[in-house]
């Protein structure tokens, strides 16, 4: 959602500090009283009126997501220079992303520099939960938006105290559809799926599982109490993404979190080493 005043999103950024960041409200309504007609031309110019002069056509030939992708590339360059390992956590609402994050942060805090960007449509409840662990968190409220985009995250990076070599967790809006399309500049998308959801979710919402590099199958402590076929879920996830890494975890019991933390630390070490090597070049 681009604001025409400053080119900034409709999203608001809440830093947990007093003092206003820029916030926009847009409340103009739209009505639709007209229909559409579509004829898909197959002529040389790809236009719908045969013989139409070429001067009346302005070629654009750009990907619709190219603007987001250029913001994402800028974020990625900025994070790489700092040696920051950034993860984009995505899932449906209620999968336990925030609980998982709180648990992981309590293990990391004091050992490695870490920061969090929280995305929700409204409230700063999640950022407050994160800050209770002692970790700096920025809340982005997307308003009507259903996903974080790279431009919002760029603004959040302006406000976030980010130590070189940090781990940055970006918790996306709970939505298993839209965030798949928007690169934020992260190293990896991590998709969280809880065992209280269906094992066919990777087939129902394949884009997210295809876009992710790691899947955390969360709430494993509930497995004895419910009918959930872990093997079928894993097979479904691997069908849409044969390269997907999968860990079974529980934010509650702590199962599997050591493996996740090892993976995070390995990524962080690589990001740091890469930044160091690039600085010498």
């Amino acid at each position: 959602m681009m604001c025409t005043v400053c080119g900034c999103g409709e999203a608001s950024v809440e830093t947990g500090k007093t003092g206003a960041d820029h916030v926009h409200s847009h409340d103009h309504g739209h009505d639709h009283g007209h229909g559409h007609s579509h004829d898909y031309g197959t002529g040389l110019a790809g236009v719908h009126v045969p013989g139409l002069s070429q001067e009346r056509i302005v070629r654009i030939e750009r990907d619709i997501l190219s603007k987001n992708d250029s913001h994402a590339a800028a974020n990625r360059a900025r994070l790489a220079e700092l040696g920051v390992f950034a993860l984009n956590l995505v899932s449906s609402p209620g999968s336990g992303k925030t609980a998982l994050l709180v648990r992981v942060l309590s293990d990391l805090v004091g050992k490695v520099p870490v920061a969090v960007i929280e995305g929700d449509q409204q409230t700063s409840n999640d950022a407050a939960r994160i800050r209770a662990t002692g970790v700096a968190a920025i809340q982005i409220n997307t308003g009507k938006g259903c996903h974080l985009d790279a431009h919002m995250v760029g603004h959040a990076l302006d406000d976030l105290p980010l130590e070189p070599g940090s781990v940055l967790f970006i918790e996306n809006v709970g939505n298993l559809v839209c965030p798949a399309a928007f690169d934020l500049g992260e190293a990896h998308k991590v998709v969280v799926l809880s065992v209280t959801e269906g094992e066919d979710k990777p087939l129902k919402y394949p884009d997210m599982f295809a876009a992710a590099d790691l899947m955390l199958l969360n709430k494993s402590d509930l497995l004895p109490h419910i009918e959930f076929d872990v093997a079928a879920c894993v097979a479904n996830a691997l069908r849409v993404n044969p390269r997907l890494k999968i860990l079974t975890v529980s934010a509650r019991s702590g199962e599997g979190l050591d493996s996740f933390l090892d993976w995070v630390r390995a990524g962080q070490a690589l990001a740091r080493a890469t930044a160091k090597a690039a600085a010498l070049a």
Binding site: M1, M2, V58, I60, I64, K144, V177, C178, A181
Partner: peptide, 22 residues
């Protein structure tokens, strides 16, 4: 409804392309 964001991106690209044209 990420189509809203995509529609806005379409408009952005169109405005970029015709900005300096009459």
């Amino acid at each position: 409804m990420h189509e809203m964001a995509l529609a806005e991106s379409v408009i952005d690209l169109v405005e970029d392309a015709i900005r300096d044209k009459d």
